[in-house]
Design a protein around this nucleic acid. Sequence first.
DNA 1: GCCGTTTTCGGCCCGACTGTTTTCAGTCG
Length: 562
Amino acid sequence: MARANDEMAALLEEYAALFAMTGGDAFRVRSYQKAARSIAGHPDDLRETDIRKIPNVGSAITGKVEEFLRVGTFHQLERLRAQVPEGVRAMTRIPSLGPKKAMALFEDLGIDSPEALAEAIRAGRLKGLRGFGAKTEANLLRGIEQLATAGGRVHIGVAMALAERVMADLPAAGRIAYAGSLRRMKETIGDIDILATGDSATLMGAFTALPYVTEVIASGAAKTSVRTDAGLQIDLRVVPEESFGAAMQYFTGSQAHNIRLREIAVKQGRKLSEYGLFEGSAVIASRTEEDVYEALGLPWVPPPLREDTGEIEAALRGELPVLVTEADIRGDLHTHTDLTDGVASIEEMVAAAAARGYEYYAITDHAPDLAMQRMTLEKALAQRELLPGLEKRHGLRLLHGTELNIAPDGSVDWPAEVLAGFDVTVASVHSHFTQSREEMTRRFIAACENPHVHVIGHPTTRKIGKRQPVDADWDEIFRVCARTGTVLEIDAYPDRNDLPADLVRRARGLGVKFSIDSDSHAVPHLANLRYGVGTAQRGWLTPDDVVNTWPADRLLAYLHGR
DNA sequence: GCCGTTTTCGGCCCGACTGTTTTCAGTCG
């Protein structure tokens, strides 16, 4: 059965939004949001835990959870759902239109969807409505159009490339860095935050003049927001050199993490803002992030952990994990060549891997069951013959592997005696994505129990923005992985980022090991590994959790000793 | 609604920018 936590958290988030729209107390809104985060991040299923022990869940929300566990919803939510049409909530996704204005439009004019709002503006029906002038109307129309076309978030690969391009294109004066969800390595990014020091007029002028900037949304001396031709919003903030650390801390977020830090500051009789930690008007810390955290009594918290899902408590106890880094990775366990669907030769791929400093590198071309790849045992064995020569020329250890196809019944290509000849096998789902939850779960478990399957590749098979993850009982699969020693892959290709970070953290809690692989089909793809490392960090993984940080001998002994 | 080394009641993070405003509300992050 699916974990009840995520569904309950989503209902509480929805309730918080509806509660705010209907004029509910802002502090209670925050309580619902905090409880939603606590429940989503709680390791145990709601059905099997003492609900009252979950932080930020008191007696009232416990009642809502219990009702949800009985009937799948709670009556307070249903009452508000009946009061606020779905389309009115959708209106709050229009930039600059929040709960107050959306409800005013609904109550005064009966406008109940973004489309109805656009019609009303064009028909002049908003004239005279308090708070809606000509500029607001124009902004709303543009926002509605953009909502319909751009659709919001992009995967981290797109956002990182744009952020690095902007930073390179701005006049280099002082410091410049990206913050926000990009620095936290979230898998999708809604907008890009860039911080810089130096002359504001010069920086802002150059920023708004960038050739790919199509619209200036807001501009002041401290902050300028633009939209690019790709539809992505970028905020540039010019901050004083002496408060760069406090600004980085603040603009990296997450908002929930920052609120916790500010609460700690308030308890110390201080005030934390993007300009520093203050005691009265005296600055206690501001120059570096480390200074700010230290002054609050905390070790520096790595950005991927800053989600208020337990990192503050871990930091206070001195128990923050020592996260895996890209430098810890000794080799890549999932890569392709032009023998199947890659575009580079084995020689080019191995040379690039050696240039990255890898100690070992696995070539894992597709196996025969993906018929369009035209793979045969003869081709695979011929490829294996090339490895000793390549090892000598490039000075790294090569592992001969294959990416197997997990059939609907959980079986894979090739009989056991052939599979036994590979150093490493990655088994992945490539088709039949719509099997029932029970069938899909059985399919993965069968693959995990195959002693010749070492790694499960891109486990959920999702493609961000294109394909939903398959439906399976992941906790059950994770337990089987832990029991059989089957490794779960974090596929670093940025439109996959699969396993996702929340599942990584759950699997780690159940004792699973991981590999972080690029799934490269070309030389530049090898560099995507950093996105997989980011996802691993968001899942709280240490080097010991990640098998491809291990020396080759330990890795191979583990894979073949299962 | 939640929470507690000043509190079981009275607090609950902070600032920038916009637009419609003669001093501020709403939105955003």
